[in-house]
Write a protein that binds this DNA or RNA. Sequence first.
DNA 1: CTCGAACATGAACGGGATGTCATGAGCACC
DNA 2: GGTGCTCATGACATCCCGTTCATGTTCGAG
Lengths: 225, 225
Amino acid sequence: MRLLLIEDDDDVATYVRNGLREAGHAVDLAADGRDGLLMAAAEPYDLLIVDRGLPKLDGLALVKTLRGTGDDTPVLFLTALGTVDQRVEGLRAGGDDYLTKPFAFSELQARIDALHRRRTQAAPETILQVADLELELLSRTARRNGRDIELLPREFALLEFLMRHAGQVVTRTMLLEKVWDYHFDPQTNVIDVHVSRLRSKIDRGFSAPLIHTVRGVGYVLRAPA
Amino acid sequence: MRLLLIEDDDDVATYVRNGLREAGHAVDLAADGRDGLLMAAAEPYDLLIVDRGLPKLDGLALVKTLRGTGDDTPVLFLTALGTVDQRVEGLRAGGDDYLTKPFAFSELQARIDALHRRRTQAAPETILQVADLELELLSRTARRNGRDIELLPREFALLEFLMRHAGQVVTRTMLLEKVWDYHFDPQTNVIDVHVSRLRSKIDRGFSAPLIHTVRGVGYVLRAPA
DNA sequence: CTCGAACATGAACGGGATGTCATGAGCACC
DNA sequence: GGTGCTCATGACATCCCGTTCATGTTCGAG
């Protein structure tokens, strides 16, 4: 689980970060609101833990801005500003939970888990994304760089499989099993042909291709470095 | 928004219920844990507000039981049991939020809204259900009474449209527009043929058909009475 | 009950999506 | 830089899905 902690007080930041790391999370740290916003916008996090009294950009404004961009990453406010009005303000601004300092670490963890539990169980993925390529599973359409791409059923299945294994090499055998449901080798180049057709739709005309062939093994879908 | 309040203290129950009703919610009330569990299981609620010290079945056990059945309705604990350990316990048992008495009504409302906001925005529908017929939009398969049914693309589109308008009569013109994307009358019986094929897959062999023809108008998908 | 129109359905047809083939290009190893 | 194998791709063949057609059935009005 990837977390972003936005907190300017070094002592609190260190304490929380260490605790969360021990619990097995990957924790990034931002020391002011400006940095926090930039990092939150640049990387996909599972949860943001946000202080309110931050230098450069306060936590409340940060969350409002983020929500304004359509980002719906869960936010947990962790702050000393604990009056009822302040708590309401934080939740109304788009926060999902609000915990006041001083706090018990065990409660922070329980609240983080509760947010995460709901998010993962309640939401089957409906959009796959790799670099600037998006695949909408419900409408069965692909989009690259904002441009809509029509896919035939088999091409869709192939791309979905590649995207679900983005960054991993996918062997021909895997493709035959999972995309074609062949449990034998058809002794033909079906795969090559469909990869070629898919490439012509999603890579043709773009400077950096996403589909790469791994000679003797298979293919990878990988975001350009 | 449909809420179920499970609270044995009459004064608190009345106070909360009235406040929520003024905010425009439909509120049901259960005065003990047993009733609360039965009501939560019988009706679909958007949120449960649960006290912990309840007669017959305490709130914690209630939520654990509910989660055990696979019910994932959001739960907000509203209780006087406010130590850190008790809060953690409540969240770990499957609660989504935990507010301790005495509480400010405005905060309760803000927390309810936060839970609801996340639930609705984050979850595009992925399964349609009418009576014992289910349609999984991601895997593109139908199931009736637990039995899997294979659908061709056009059949799938047709069934999806009928299910999204379950209970309403769907005219031939609507079907041509929305399922076939024809903006004229093809002067053929395409629709009849596909309805017939769909029927043979989802209604054949079941005592109560779901697809009904409305002579001179179109078709309806309706759950049997 | 009769008659006409609307609907149901099995069968055949046509076209598009998928798979096959043949040829050419690219890469690795020597 | 040659050689053999792997991969890329345009063209062709096949098969399945969607549409049409023909025929039978049901329904409602009078």
